[in-house]
Nucleic acid binder design. Sequence first.
DNA 1: ATTTATATTCTACATTTGTAGAACAAAGTC
DNA 2: GACTTTGTTCTACAAATGTAGAATATAAAT
Lengths: 121, 121
Amino acid sequence: MPLSSAEEQLMHHLWKLKRAYLKELIAAIPAPKPAKTTVATLLKRMIDKGMVGYDLHGNSRQYYPKVSKQSYFAKKLKGMIDSYFDASPGAFASYFAESTKLNKAQLQELQDIINRKLEEE
Amino acid sequence: MPLSSAEEQLMHHLWKLKRAYLKELIAAIPAPKPAKTTVATLLKRMIDKGMVGYDLHGNSRQYYPKVSKQSYFAKKLKGMIDSYFDASPGAFASYFAESTKLNKAQLQELQDIINRKLEEE
DNA sequence: ATTTATATTCTACATTTGTAGAACAAAGTC
DNA sequence: GACTTTGTTCTACAAATGTAGAATATAAAT
């Protein structure tokens, strides 16, 4: 049950706010702001998809993500690696290291991480 | 003009075949195979989106990708890094190196790539 | 108590996506 | 020349997506 594009954008705001009432979510969206009912519809669909939960506070709801940004992202990335790199994270890693322009500090940070990983064996 | 999910799947076959007639494309799709008109409709939409071109051979068309898998993928990944890592490839790289389970050979390959990159300065 | 701010539900409708039948055309085969 | 294979176009329709008005509820403010 993947989120649609509009739903995913809204999810980003919810991840940032952690918990939010409708009004707060709308406040977080940059202009042109959608109608409140538009956001309400998206939230309802996201709840149906199991991605959002809520607590009742008084008569209204405080919404929160039921899936962390990290794990949602990890799933998306895995899907991409599966289809574009034949399910090989190593091939993807090589491609990424090769193609991306990182500065010296970033490259060194990566080196450190990899060295640590190698020592963990 | 992003491809829809069904279109993207078809695109993968076209990338693999490089050039293909409708029949060849359908042959490449695993069962349950869609109706030929379904594939024809998708191809038409992909042509409209500028993702596929074709040469006329006799009365029928040999289709080919107008966008390489590499560049299409790069765009997708950039979109994800923009939205999930605040447009920071470095942050993404760190996350990825940290979270993915690569074996020793893969880690060393990465090291080599990074070393080469560092020397290129 | 009346107004106001906020939220929710229901309904609606245009667009996009997934899927395919019907009809027609041309090229190769018997 | 009739038949088969392959391809294309047109049309269609259900489901998903993007967007929002109308109606309604309720809590807070005055």
